[in-house]
């Protein structure tokens, strides 16, 4: 593992909680590593496993899905569906030879700027230890 490896994290954040929480980290000027690239969706339930798989197949070292805390989903139950999909997808990723911890699910509310920044810090650290995603290099 190279010393200068900076993991590239693809983030899917729901508009009402995750994205707002990341905004809160910004307004509070909380500094965190620049590894994540955020895509906004209205609900974490919008996220299709194929989006996560595309990200990984194209070389994202980690994929982060952020939704509302269970029970607080702006659309009632979307995050419960996300939770189940992610668990099943992690199993599939493990069977496909990926470290399942490359896919990470977090619940961050709109007021949890500090938590969001901590998630990025922690995820980047863990991904550095796992190493770069080699999927792309080996594409046929």
């Amino acid at each position: 593992m190279k010393e200068d490896f900076e993991p590239r994290i693809l983030g899917f954040l729901c508009n009402w909680c995750g994205y707002a929480g990341a905004d809160m980290a910004g307004t509070s000027r909380i500094q965190y590593p620049a590894n994540v690239r955020i895509i906004r969706v209205m609900c974490s339930g919008r996220i299709d496993p194929s989006m996560i798989l595309t990200g990984l197949s194209m070389g994202a070292d980690g994929v982060l899905v952020v939704g509302c805390h269970l029970g607080d989903c702006h659309y009632v139950k979307g995050n419960y569906r996300t939770e189940r999909r992610v668990h099943l997808l992690k199993k599939m990723l493990g069977d496909m030879g990926f470290d399942p911890s490359r896919l990470r699910l977090e619940w961050v509310s709109a007021s949890e700027g500090e938590k969001f920044s901590q998630v990025i810090r922690d995820f980047a650290e863990k991904l550095k230890k796992i190493g770069p995603n080699s999927a792309v290099k080996e594409m046929p």
Binding site: S50, L53, T54, L56, S57, M92, G94, M96, G97, F98, D99, I130, G131, N133, S134, A135, E138, P140
Partner: peptide
């Protein structure tokens, strides 16, 4: 089960080498 016939044309399509 999910990829019985279509693994080779799926998005990930083959086992990543960091696997066990």
């Amino acid at each position: 089960t999910a990829y019985r016939f279509t693994l080779a044309s799926s998005i990930i399509r083959k086992k990543a080498s960091e696997g066990a």
